[in-house]
């Protein structure tokens, strides 16, 4: 009986949903983009943030992993309809969908990460990946014996270019003569999940004299880290702290604290302090940075740490400007 009724009940619930939002049954929700919540990249960071928040607060959240572009809008709408107080959308591709759905549900809060949407009920969070990448670029240049460092990106898109540009500028800041080799893995979504290709690209760069590689390529990066370990060279992780993946050869990780952003958004939506508008988060907000823990402690000298600290202060103070793109090898733009 219950089973037969449930579709009917749902229909009724759907109709009533917008009115049913109360503080008592606070329901947060999150929509991951195509990579999915285990993409070894920004979606996974968001997932880990949501999980940590759930464990801390004992409140379940709804989630959805998008599998086709049209689902972005649909998933946001369905979650808003089901009474989600806040819906977090992960990834630049969700920007237009958030803009559309936010208009339809003016009482629902939306936080979109990596895109800017101008609406009274949308909070846009953008991260300055280039600033964190600048620091790991400095570390790479300081560690390199050969004067050549490498970068392996997933796909040649503006977001990944930000990582590459920051890295290049950081490396040049330390050593103006440094050579930065760049590879992009591919042009189809498989490019984010091809560790074998990642390992080959890393080996090719090692063959050309590179001894530190920064990977910003999701699951493909795992192949880069493994290749670095097998060759006794260094790799730099991305998004989450991946130092533990290959202790001893992971020089550091460029961390992008999406987990923190997700937790903050949920918490602020619950206690009423959530604000619409744009949050442009960089080193100053501690939203990006480089990871130092027991796994890479032996690889980082006091001098390296000191120079990074100084550069961090200079970037925060605006003395060093990190550009989002590099139009040439010297990044003179």
């Amino acid at each position: 009986m219950h089973r037969l009724l449930s579709p009917v009940l749902m229909l009724v619930l759907l109709a009533l949903a917008p009115a049913a939002v109360t503080a008592a049954d606070f329901m947060p929700a999150i929509v991951f983009d195509m990579g999915g919540k285990f993409d070894k990249s920004f979606n996974q960071m968001a997932y880990e943030g949501a999980e940590a928040w759930r464990k801390e607060n004992g409140i379940a959240y709804r989630e959805f992993e998008v599998t086709s572009p049209v689902q972005r809008e649909q998933a946001l709408r369905q979650l808003a309809r089901r009474g989600a107080a806040i819906v977090i959308a992960i990834g630049f591709s969700q920007g237009p969908a958030v803009a559309t759905v936010a208009k339809e549900f003016p009482n629902t809060k939306f936080t979109v990460i990596d895109a800017i949407v101008d609406a009274p009920n949308v909070q846009s969070v953008v991260m300055r990946e280039q600033e964190g990448s600048f620091l790991v670029g400095m570390l790479a240049a300081m560690k390199s014996q050969t004067g050549k460092v490498g970068f392996v990106g997933g796909m040649d898109i503006p977001l990944i270019r930000k990582f590459a540009a920051g890295y290049r500028q950081g490396a040049l800041y330390v050593n103006p003569k440094i050579e930065v080799l760049e590879n992009m893995t591919g042009t189809t979504p498989e490019a984010w999940n091809d560790p074998t290709r990642g390992a080959e690209l890393a080996k090719a760069q090692f063959g050309r004299g590179v001894d530190v590689i920064y990977a910003a390529a999701g699951g493909t990066g795992l192949g880069v880290y493994q290749a670095a370990k097998d060759a006794g060279k260094y790799a730099i992780g991305v998004d989450s702290n991946q130092n533990y993946v290959q202790p001893g050869t992971m020089l550091t990780s460029m961390v992008k604290r999406i987990d923190k952003v997700v937790g903050e958004a949920f918490t602020s939506a619950r206690d009423g302090s959530w604000q619409p508008g744009t949050r442009d988060l960089g080193l100053a907000a501690d939203a990006v940075g480089w990871a130092l823990d027991q796994y890479n402690r032996p690889l980082i000298t006091a001098e390296m740490e000191e120079r990074c600290k100084q550069a961090t202060a200079d970037i925060v103070a605006g003395k060093i400007k990190v550009s989002e793109t590099c139009s040439n090898a010297a990044c003179t733009n």
């Binding site: 630049f92 591709s93 920007g95 895109a115 796909m155 040649d156 898109i157 503006p158 977001l159 591919g186 042009t187 189809t188």
Partner: peptide, 19 residues
């Protein structure tokens, strides 16, 4: 895939757009 990624990133990109 390669052609379209190239065109979308270099020629057809919305002005000022980051995606």
């Amino acid at each position: 895939g390669a052609l379209m990624t190239y065109l979308l990133n270099n020629w057809l990109l919305a002005p000022g757009g980051g995606s």
